Amino acid sequence: MAIADRRDRERDARRRLIVTTARRLAENDGWDAVTTRRLSTEIEYSQPVLYKHFAGMDQIAAAVAVDGFGELAEAVRAASADATSAKDALYRVAHAYNDFARDNPATYDAMFTRTTTLPFASHDTPPQLTAAFDELRQVVGPVADEQDVDSLTEVLFAALHGMVVLGRAGRVRPDHDAERLGVLVAQFTGEGNRTH
């Protein structure tokens, strides 16, 4: 049994090395620079070894995406942990989401813009993807009132993603993220409907 355990650990370690190396290369040089040839050179394994773990680059990028969703869930959870109110939690989470996307652009691309076979919003969605949505849902619930929490969470997710994509593309004013996030939070907490 010890030999089988060791083989499993070695296999898991090789798989982890492939994924972390692909992510590092993508974050440094973009996804176009990540090829199986370059990966095999970087990790000093032959291409057939890579193919024992992944069928190709799409599966490697999907593994990076799954890791990213797990990290996003943790970032959102940590951001809301010390919140003093529902509005504060929502604002902190919106900032954490924005910061994650800014700090991990290639991982964010793997999660949301690259073509993937990862199942979203279905019974076989990986738990990391579900966890990220659930963490957003936790901060939306207290401000949902009579609205459907899942639908409202999807709207928050879509709004945050839209702001990230538009910001990265230079389609909105730079250096106004905090203001936009404040407006978004005000809309979700009902403060955006008040006249001043």
Rank of each mutant, 00 (worst) to 15 (best):
Q187S: 13
G141N: 04
Q187V: 13
D103L: 07
H95I: 11
F120R: 14
V143T: 13
T153E: 02
Q138S: 10
A169E: 06
A78G: 01
H161E: 06
N98G: 10
L184Y: 04
L90M: 04
P174G: 07
A144F: 04
D99R: 15
F112T: 01
A159Q: 12
M163Y: 07
Y97V: 15
V185L: 03
D177N: 11
V185A: 12
S80R: 15
L72C: 03
G167Y: 05
T115W: 01
T116W: 02
L129N: 06
A106K: 06
R77E: 12
D88F: 09
D177M: 01
F112I: 00
T84I: 10
F69H: 12
A159W: 04
Q147E: 15
E135W: 01
T116H: 04
D109W: 05
P126T: 08
A106I: 03
R173H: 09
V93A: 00
L166H: 05
R77Q: 12
R92K: 13
Y97S: 14
N104A: 07
S122V: 00
F100H: 06
A73Y: 11
A186Q: 06
Q128I: 11
Y97I: 14
A79R: 01
T113I: 04
L129Q: 12
V155P: 07
A101T: 12
D134E: 13
V143H: 09
A158L: 14
N98V: 05
L118T: 11
A169N: 04
A186D: 15
A121T: 09
E146W: 10
A110P: 06
A110H: 06
L118R: 02
T113E: 00
P142D: 04
V149L: 05
P142L: 10
K87W: 05
L152H: 11
F157Y: 07
A78P: 07
L72R: 06
H95Y: 11
V164M: 06
A132G: 08
L181D: 11
Q128V: 09
G167V: 06
A94S: 15
A86N: 00
E135R: 12
T113Y: 09
T153R: 03
A106E: 02
A158H: 08
A131V: 02
A106R: 07
A79C: 09
V140S: 14
A73F: 12
